[in-house]
């Protein structure tokens, strides 16, 4: 389930990035890459586990769903930290100047 949730987050982030492109003031491309990177890696993990161990391709449990949301939240936190450090609106610069 975390694979599906992360893939959905990657799709939504990409749509939002494309709507605002070519301007990318808020570094949405970084968020897209974070989610797509994890989606691609979990895709390989799921395919290989399915081929070697069998069973269900998607793990639909409450634990996996909760993990999916935590992963999306963690991706957002990483993006937010990168955004605040780069500070594209120079907010901190202006705040410290005043």
């Amino acid at each position: 389930m975390f694979f599906i949730i992360t893939a959905l987050a990657a799709i939504v982030a990409t749509i939002v990035w494309y709507v605002n492109a070519p301007e990318d003031k808020y570094k949405l491309n970084l968020l897209c890459f974070i989610y797509w990177g994890a989606t691609l890696m979990w895709f390989v993990d799921h395919v290989m586990a399915f081929l070697t161990e069998g069973g269900e391709f998607f793990e639909i449990t409450l634990d996996a769903t909760l993990l999916g949301f935590v992963v999306v939240l963690f991706g957002l936190i990483v993006w937010l930290i990168a955004l605040l450090i780069s500070d594209p609106k120079k907010v901190f610069h202006k705040l410290l100047k005043n």
Binding site: I34, Y35, W36, G37, A38, V71, F74, G75
Partner: peptide, 20 residues
């Protein structure tokens, strides 16, 4: 930089999954 972001992004989220 695109490859770096894909790899580091994936690694960070997968590390969290492994901790979980």
């Amino acid at each position: 930089s695109w490859l770096n972001r894909l790899l580091w992004g994936g690694v960070l989220l997968l590390a969290l999954e492994h901790i979980w």
